[in-house]
Design a protein around this nucleic acid. Structure first.
Lengths: 118, 118, 118, 118
DNA sequence: GTGGTCTAGACCACA
DNA sequence: GTGGTCTAGACCACA
């Protein structure tokens, strides 16, 4: 069971969506497996059903889940999801390298001080 | 001279701050050099003076500039700035590696498809 | 035998109705032939009897079948069915042409890129 | 000035979104032109700001507009929009032809009874 | 019960 | 003022 982090600057609906994106990408939730119902998840997270609904709608638009009226929300089959995520990460990586480059920091210098721990 | 990009999702004050961070880190603006006055920059960028003020305040908090009442804002001497920026970039890098790791993407796989160019 | 597609955005009762419309229009089911009982079909499709009932009611309203109390549902004789369906398709066609027209796409341009296959 | 049609089965937010999609595709609204503010449009249409917000969010996700915090929503530059819409219409066209085909109606028969008027 | 839409109203960040 | 998020609560279609 995961909890929301109210310190987190991301809006609640986004935290929920990100949580399920991770679960799906990790394979914890498999194709056609149901997500908790909107109302039930809202109760568990002590948040409003509309907020959960917003998260689920976002997940649907991004191709992670599909929704069946009167039945619930389910994990969508999409073998390309991992590749999409990888592409997104690589794009963010490129942005970092670009910023580093602009102030004269090479990739190797950046990667050397390896675990720029959070 | 750089212009604001309204299509950029970042708020305008952040774009302004980032612009000056870059100029300072690149050495284009040197220690004790003055930044444009709030009003003048607001005019040039066709934006609200409050917005420029917010950007300058942020820059001050992050140690990039110092402000002298009645005189203006100036680049702060800080030899550690480059290191700070490097640390920030490494932190973002670590976050990306962490996200990749969670879904089973290794660093080398991420770095291989090298130029996930933006 | 056709199966339901839960990823299909149409509600399930509509998928069922459409399935039988097609079978009737194609002549696979002939006049006075019985449809499966509500309960049996519900079992086969692993869905709710209410849902099948709703599909059958819709089919009856649209003139595809008739129902006999205590006996079941049967294909209705209706030589005009094909014409009705044709009219419906033409109406949808007209809607598409209208939408295209509004943004300056001619029929020929639309039909040229012929197989905008699904 | 356009009005909402409460007879229309589409939800209100979708009607609003479709209205603006059309205006943008027709070139009535040009790149970087502002849309009415959420609150103002809500007043004009006698609907709730949240509903307008939902429409604008949908438009943003679909690439029709971009939003700037504290400023408003603006038409996004996207020369590919017309092509996307064309592709969508062709896809719907293909679906109609497929349905027609399944019950033995040829394209020419469908197109002959030309203006299957609504 | 389950998702989806909508309203009324509050609060926050940003310009 | 302008967008964005969230809550509480209602109502509808569908299964």
């Amino acid at each position: 069971m995961n909890f929301l982090d109210f310190q987190d600057p991301r809006p609640i609906y986004e935290q929920i969506a990100d949580m399920y994106k991770k679960l799906i990408l990790q394979g914890v939730l498999k194709t056609d497996e149901p997500l908790p119902s909107v109302r039930k998840l809202a109760m568990e997270l002590s948040t409003n059903p509309n907020t959960v609904q917003k998260a689920y709608t976002a997940l649907e638009h991004e191709g992670f889940i599909y929704s069946v009226k009167g039945r619930g929300n389910f994990v969508k089959e999409d073998p390309a999801l991992r590749e999409k995520k990888k592409a997104e990460l690589q794009s963010r990586l490129a942005e970092i390298f670009k910023e580093a480059d602009e102030i004269g920091i090479s990739r190797s210098e950046l990667l050397d001080g390896k675990d720029g721990k959070k």
